[in-house]
Amino acid sequence: MGNKNHHAHHFESAAAEFEASKQGLWVFLVNEVLFFAGLFVAYAIYRILNPDLMHEAHKYLNWKLGATNTVVLICSSLTMALGVTAAQKGQQKKSANLILVTILLACVFLVIKYFEYMHKIHEGLLPGGLFSYHEPIHPKAPQFFSVYFVLTGLHGIHVIGGIVVLAWIYMRTLRGEFTDKYFTPVECTGLYWHFVDLVWIYLFPLLYLAS
């Protein structure tokens, strides 16, 4: 089934299979949107019920690191898009290099996130019952950090998942499995990666710039 020159037996052509895969991925992304939407709703409810909460609590997030990460992810989206274009044109080598850069940028994102988390854990700015900051903030601040950690944590898991898939695509590109006729996995991974970036682009202002 994995043979690059053939399409799966139940499709009439490679083009039909490509179309189906792409549609499948779009459906998957819609499903992902709903997954994050639930958390955004929780965020909205706590924000509506406690208008001053986000305003006070967001100051304890480091917006500079957040902004850096936003830039990192936007760059990675760009390299990914270029990588997909290269794959479509059959420029395997170029495509592989761009995917590698994307992976590296994703790692940079995670490293920055790691330092942010460590700082929060050190300060006791933690979710719910674990919250132990040395001075009082807002009575609902623990809820803010619950939303913060769950939202960025789930996003982080998606980034890690993205890195794994990108690494796999990178290996396959190096092995020369893709051609200008068959590049479905590269294109689909690209779509997924743009989605992961997009989630962050919503996350960043909502959490870090909440005033």
Binding site: L34, F35, G38, L39, A42, G128, G129, L130, P142, Q143
Partner: peptide, 30 residues
């Protein structure tokens, strides 16, 4: 496709609530 991710999130949050008390659903934690 549209509704299941929300229950996935809900059960996940409930799991976190039980495991470490994230205080999203627990009135005792606000």
């Amino acid at each position: 496709v549209l509704a299941t991710p929300v229950i996935a999130l809900t059960t996940f949050l409930l799991f976190l609530e039980r495991a470490m008390g994230i205080g999203i659903f627990d009135p005792a934690l606000g």
